[in-house]
Design a protein around this nucleic acid. Structure first.
Length: 625
DNA sequence: GTAGGGTTAG
């Protein structure tokens, strides 16, 4: 009977079996013993009364269940006392203790305490089970979580909406959205629970994390129709998702809708929107929202400030970012590692590696521990300056700080070697440190860096065979990878191969981006295929891919070099019409026109038309064109 | 006493 029920509930039969067969938590139990040992070694450290009355202990538990213990040891000592108390405290108090431990994110400790409770036959209830299911989900052991679901039923308890909502979240966080959805559907079909606002919000969040804002909005409407009223968190989840997909106006619409319906946005709602607006450079709207927050008396938090710091840094306005940090400190918010990482990134982007290092060190002085990203940013700073050896030193220093270099760290160094022209070391680093490192997951960025490095150093054949290897290993190349290859092939005299790759893109379900088009146009020019080049330019516009200033500059140079003065003039007019400026090499190609002695009417026309600008350019007085 | 949302990205 139970098996049938479970099968209906959970599409993870094999997971369940696995959980049943391996239901031992010895490793957690060992951890508990360790913790216990450490408490026993400090018997006089108990910060509360050495003989707490029941009432006092109970009050303490209520308080700590909301905020967590100050130290893990304190919690473990309380637990030991509770085990010895007679009569035993009610299950509620044990649950509060577990809650306090979980507030400290000590999930495996909570598991071992639960295990101990079971060994000592301390009574538990469905809330205890739910708490533990949540622990396993946070420990990425949804399989164990499901075995506890079986445990609930075995004990004659009834799993409730908390149980299932937690499991759904666990499945989603373990990247099993499909299973989460199936469980949700089955719960409704078998009328096992009435999903509440948290259940719906959890599912909506899962859909959002799969990058599907329109489906999320659909479910949002369904829940309303079913009489489940979305709350601040539901709205915030959707708003954040819309913002991350650039649908900021739709998100702003939801902000208005929620306030109209009497649901108050909070600091997270506003921070998500501010982030979305920053991403698309709508600074004016950012200011409006910040004002709106003030009006509503919603104060900014570290997240909000970090978003602003990051946005200023990405715009190169680091002084403003520094001001934001000063302001937040004045207002009693302390910048954290994320805030400083954003600042470091800003300096790194500007190429000021010394200042990047200064931020890194000031962080350490303030006892804010740098994380892997801090290191990655600093390493990137040095790599950009081609100081790869310093980058390697930092990379080797990471383990002593308790940090493991991740794929990004390795990728950054690989790129550093290639940029510095040290391709022999780059290839050695890739083969020995990356390929042979079983714990390292290589990704598309790795492939892109490697392919680009190989192509730019003339190893096109090696790049191609690596590309094939990558396809075989299941990594699906994206448009960035193809763009690198197309560029590499064409610049190494294999225009036809580049052309074939380019024309096969649609068959692979890929759309060329501006860079792909621009590089392909450049390749045609190099190969003397002028008609193909200009045709492709018109084709990209027709495909809604808007040319950038780089495209125009390249196009104009290509025309000039090939003496297509009439076309050059047309594209020049077009570029100026889009308020793009000529870059240095286009400007110099235009200057060369003054020297050309040919009775070519389009050349003369072009020279006449732009002679004031050209003369000005020659005097180097006119900025821009 | 148990479940849900946000900042960094080479």
């Amino acid at each position: 009977m139970m098996k049938r029920l479970m099968r209906a509930l959970c599409p993870l039969k094999s997971q369940l079996l696995l959980a049943h067969s391996s239901g031992n938590f010895t490793s957690c139990f060992d951890l508990y013993s360790l913790c216990r040992f450490s408490t026993k070694s400090n018997p006089n450290n108990f910060p509360y009364s050495s003989h707490p009355t029941h009432a006092r202990l109970q009050h303490l538990l209520l308080e700590k269940s909301k905020v967590g213990f100050d130290k893990l040891d304190d919690g473990l000592q309380v637990f030991d006392k509770m085990l010895l108390m007679k009569p035993l405290l009610p299950v509620l108090k044990f649950n509060q203790l577990l809650a306090a431990v979980i507030k400290m994110k000590e999930y495996s400790v909570a598991v071992s305490l639960f295990r101990k409770m079971r060994v000592e036959s301390i009574p538990v209830n469905v809330i205890t089970f739910n708490t533990l299911i949540n622990c396993f989900c946070h420990l990425n052991r949804v399989d164990f979580a499901f075995s506890l679901l079986a445990g609930i039923i075995k004990h004659g308890f009834v799993p409730d909406v908390f149980t299932y909502t937690t499991l759904i979240r666990g499945l989603i966080s373990q990247d099993m959205p499909h299973e989460a959805q199936l469980l949700f559907q089955n719960l409704i079909r078998f009328k096992l629970i009435q999903p509440n606002v948290v259940t719906y919000t959890t599912i909506i969040d899962g859909i959002c994390k799969r990058g599907n804002p329109s489906v999320a909005v659909k479910l949002f409407k369904i829940m309303e129709k079913k009489g489940c009223r979305p709350n601040t968190i539901t709205y915030t989840t959707i708003i954040d998702c819309l913002c991350k997909h650039g649908l900021v106006d739709q998100a702003l619409g939801l902000l208005h809708r929620m306030t109209r319906k009497g649901i108050s946005p909070n600091v997270i709602t506003y921070s998500s929107l501010i982030q979305g607006l920053c991403d698309i450079n709508r600074w004016h709207d950012v200011k409006l929202l910040l004002k709106e927050m003030d009006v509503r008396n919603i104060s900014r938090d570290v997240f909000t400030y970090s978003i602003l710091v990051d946005a200023y840094c990405k715009e190169g306005m680091i002084e403003d970012a520094e001001d934001v940090i000063q302001l937040m400190i004045q207002r009693g918010h302390y910048p954290d590692v994320v805030t400083y990482n954003a600042l470091m990134d800003g300096y790194c982007l500007r190429g000021e590696v010394d200042k990047t290092l200064a931020v890194f060190e000031s962080m350490k002085r303030k006892a804010i521990l740098p994380d892997t990203l801090s290191y990655n940013t600093l390493i990137n700073g040095y790599c950009k300056k081609l100081k790869v050896d310093i980058a390697i030193d930092l990379f080797q220093q990471m383990p002593s700080e308790g940090l493991t270099p991740n794929t990004e760290t390795y990728n950054t160094i690989l790129q550093g070697f290639f940029r510095a022209g040290r391709h022999v070391e780059a290839r050695k680093f890739f083969k020995e440190k990356m390929m042979l490192n079983k714990g390292l997951q290589l990704n598309k960025v790795t492939c892109a860096i490697l392919l680009d490095g190989l192509c730019k150093n003339g190893y096109v054949r090696e790049a191609l065979s690596f590309f094939q290897m990558m396809e075989c290993s299941g990594l699906v190349p994206d448009i960035y990878i193809y763009t690198i290859l197309i560029d590499g092939l064409s610049k190494n005299g294999q225009l036809e191969a580049a052309r074939t790759l380019f024309s096969n893109l649609p068959a692979k379900g890929l759309r060329p981006n501006v860079k792909t088009y621009t590089l392909m146009i450049q390749a045609y020019f190099h190969g003397g295929l002028l008609n193909e080049a200009t045709e492709l330019f018109r084709e990209m516009e027709a495909n809604d891919c808007l040319p950038t200033d780089v495209t125009y500059n390249m196009l104009i140079r290509g025309c000039l070099q090939n003496k297509k003065y009439y076309e050059a003039g047309v594209f020049l007019d077009e570029m100026l019409g889009h308020s793009f400026a000529a870059d240095a090499s286009t400007a110099s190609a235009l200057l060369d026109l003054l020297e050309v002695q040919e009775p070519d009417p389009p050349l003369l026309a072009l020279r006449d038309k732009y002679s004031p600008i050209l003369k000005c350019l020659k005097g180097r007085e006119c900025p821009g064109t």
